[in-house]
Design a protein around this nucleic acid. Structure first.
Length: 495
RNA sequence: GGCGCUAUGGUGCAACGGUUAGCACGUAGCCCUUUCAAGGCUAAAAUACGGGUUCGAUUCCCGUUAGCGCUACCA
């Protein structure tokens, strides 16, 4: 075991391109990555595409995109198992040669059907010891069917136990009687001698070849592990350390699936979550730093990540908590980390103006080079998802914005409003300077002169200048928009 | 069915033999307030059940129950 880490910590994430990058897979990838970073190790990406039937090569791009968005960067690969067939065949032949595997001529659908009971066994095997009498004895099938191509099966010991140490679950032991003679290599098609590798062989051969020190993967692989440990031994290698991760469940505690909502990480990107918030949330699903801290930026996660902190209980994917994390990041992130995300969002929605880039020309208020960052800061406490910058905050970035009918209904009810806004427009237009306090005083003066409460004017004005009942504090909003726009929007309101 | 794993509020985690069982999300209420958020305060809410071990169990052991996983020439 110890010699496994001689050439350093080496981990891998090994998705199969039979679908998109699932949040469960994303969490596995994240844990591998955090562990590798924390231990100054190496992370390898390996595509497990040995099943030509199910595998869809075009899905690899989506998985890679998902990982990149997540910020999980691998150091080696991606390696494709479909291109390493010869390696697996050699390993299978080695097992054949040293007696740890055998050729099986059974038709695939017959093997488990009880065709292989030894003579004299008429009872259907019912688990327990009876099961092992199912050792394949299909030499007869070969004799009566000379053309049949065999698969290679591993010869699991008839007795004894196989144990391994799981860093998360502890010492784990399986009775060999429970393990069937699993297939290593599919039978050959056409004129091939053998077909593609099966999962168990591929993982083990690659994990040996890639000198993997820690196998960090979902707990759904616990039952596979003894098979793999047996294979390591048959191939003359020492098994790595295993760390199985509890599964992620949906709100009903069933395995997370599409009907629970989005399970494709790329959908969280398009929904507008910040990758760092998503990482923070995911890291805390099945792992804890050992105390109550929750807001952990990526550098903190790396610093704190220990396999010992991984939980053994399956966890529910709680989207409301993810949303909370996102708002936390939207509010707390240093502005320079947030700006690029907002810029990208505004570009997506075609609202972006190059003059807003840092250090460029003044913003719409014609005053300050950092208009964009000031405006984002003003907006961020109320934003939940990145696209809100384009929709909810549209009036800050474009003159073409809708007026919400419900907002009108609520704040323009009073018949005095049109005249009030006209007076306010005149008052504001006459202002020699433009800042929060000046706007504040001018507005309140107009309200007072008209004999109405300031609130009435303020609320009505908000609707006129941003089209919504909800926005940042009014006078800050006025400053962000600039004098010209505020005046013209007020004048246009009832025209 | 067999085998394996797991079991703290609705949810995610903490307490690794001794705490009034802690934090966060969510929920309810209050405060703040020009809207809405944010923020602050408060409240309701948990050790699945039954046996042991121990001076003492959330914590260790056994059983029950429940959930999940595996049980493919899928990964």
């Amino acid at each position: 075991m110890t010699d496994k880490t001689q050439d350093g910590i080496r981990v891998r994430f090994a998705p199969s391109p039979t679908g998109y990058l699932h949040v469960g897979g994303a969490r596995t990838a994240l844990f591998n990555w955090l562990f590798a970073r924390r231990q100054h190790g190496t992370m390898i990406l390996r595509i497990e595409d040995t099943d030509a039937e199910r595998n869809k090569p075009e899905l690899v791009t989506g998985i890679l995109d998902g990982l990149k968005w997540l910020g999980v960067a691998w150091d080696e690969g991606p390696f494709y198992q479909s291109q390493r067939t010869e390696l697996y065949r050699q390993a299978a032949k080695k097992c054949l040669a040293n007696g740890s595997a055998f050729l099986c001529y059974c038709p695939p659908e017959k093997y488990a059907g009880g065709d292989h009971r030894e003579p004299g066994q008429d009872e259907e095997p019912k688990g327990g010891g009876a099961r092992r009498v199912m050792r394949c004895s299909c030499r007869d099938a070969q004799a009566s069917n000379p053309g049949v191509k065999p698969a290679v099966r591993f010869k699991v010991p008839l007795g004894g136990t196989t144990r391994f140490t799981d860093v998360v679950f502890g010492e784990t032991e399986f009775s060999n009687e429970e393990i069937e003679d699993f297939v290593l290599l599919r039978s050959g098609k056409g004129d091939e001698e053998f077909g593609q590798s099966m999962y168990q062989l591929g993982v083990v051969v690659d994990d040996i070849d890639m000198r993997i020190s820690h196998v960090i993967r979902g707990a759904d692989h616990i039952s596979n592990t003894p098979k793999q440990v047996l294979l390591y031994r048959a191939l003359g290698a020492e098994p790595p350390l295993f760390a199985h991760l509890p599964l992620i469940l949906g709100a009903d505690k069933k395995r997370l699936s599409k009907r629970h909502g989005a399970t494709d990480v790329n959908m969280y990107r398009t929904e507008g979550f910040l990758p760092e918030a998503f990482r923070n949330f995911l890291a805390l699903l099945g792992w804890s730093p050992g105390n109550d801290e929750e807001y952990l930026r990526t550098k903190d996660l790396i610093e704190r990540f220990l396999l010992e902190g991984v939980s053994r209980t399956n966890g529910v994917f709680d989207k409301p908590k993810l949303e909370w994390f996102n708002t936390q990041y939207l509010q707390k992130l240093p502005i320079e980390d947030l700006l690029p995300e907002v810029e990208e969002e505004l570009k997506r929605s075609k609202l972006w103006k190059e003059e807003w880039a840092a250090g460029a020309a003044p913003g719409p208020d014609g005053r300050d080079q950092t208009w964009f960052s000031r405006t984002v800061n003003l907006l961020r406490p109320r934003i939940r998802l990145l696209p809100d910058f384009s929709s909810w905050s549209r009036a800050f970035f474009s003159d073409d914005f809708p007026i919400d009918p419900a907002a009108k209904e609520k704040f323009w009810k009073d018949p005095k409003v049109p005249e009030l806004l006209a007076k306010l427009a005149d008052a504001l237009a006459a202002l020699p300077e433009w800042n929060h306090d000046v706007c504040d005083h001018a507005s309140r003066a107009v309200a007072e002169a008209a004999g109405v409460k300031a609130g009435l004017l303020i609320n009505a004005t908000r609707v006129a200048i941003v089209g919504q009942a909800v926005a940042p504090p009014l006078f800050d909003t006025m400053v962000a928009l600039g004098q010209e726009r505020v005046v013209s929007r007020l004048r246009k309101a009832f025209r």
